[in-house]
Amino acid sequence: MNVNKMFPERGPAFWWTGFTALIASGTIFILFVSLVVESVPVFKVQGVSFLWGTDWFAGESYGALPMIFGSLMVTGLAVILVLPFALGSAILTSEFLNGRYRLMVKAAMELLAGVPGIIYGLIGIALLTAAVRDVFGLIDGNTLFTAGLLLAVMILPTVMTLAEDALRAVPGEFRDTALSLGLTRMEMVLKVVVPQALPGLAGAVFLGLGRAMGETIAVMLVIGGIDRIPQPWFDLFAPGQSIPSKIGREAAESLGFDLQWSALIALGLVLFVMVMALTSAGNLLLRRAR
């Protein structure tokens, strides 16, 4: 009876779409539940000290803080590095280029967005580590900074094309009105178009952030792979470890077995929650911005 009121039209289309939606949302739910269930053993043994312990040695102790720290550092750095370039080129493409040129830039960027992470990893390990070492006069180029820089390059096309889409979505009348009121082109872009596109721009950044935070292989090859928080903590030119890189290095050894497996799953859960928190924080900010 109730169902009739809630869903007045229940044709085959309703049932099919309902079925697919159930599978889709159920997958996320099952994923989350299994992450929680599988990570219970490590929390039982280590308690919450799993989250702020700094010592990780398979078979002995599991402390996730260096990995959590490393993930936050490299993604934060990547976003800071990518913002000016992604926004700048998005504004240029959307506001100052027209027709063919705009399409050319967009096509190139969309092509770049599809390049697999391992390609960036190979370039990173072959060229970027040596370049970072020489440019900054370090003893070794496998650092948090290198990983952040590589991630910035990786997410640049994604952030740029999405930001460009957001800018294009601002209706032309806004631009016409601004110009007819006597604003310069620069003022029009910065005071009218960008504020209007802000939710979309933030969305672009958060999507880039998500990709950066989950990226495994490219980071694994250049971050140094050491489970340690640098001394002092803001020393970006020290080696570190990120959550995906740690899981990537240890997963095959403990597949589905033992406390180490549970600890790796718990790391995955932490990553999951971190990405969720970032996304919802972003959404909240966006709602306020509007």
Partner: peptide, 20 residues
Amino acid sequence: ARLVTGSNNEEQSKIAQSDS
């Protein structure tokens, strides 16, 4: 330790890449 590597390949190339 300053770096952690996995396979013999990886360790070999990291040492070859460095001068110290």
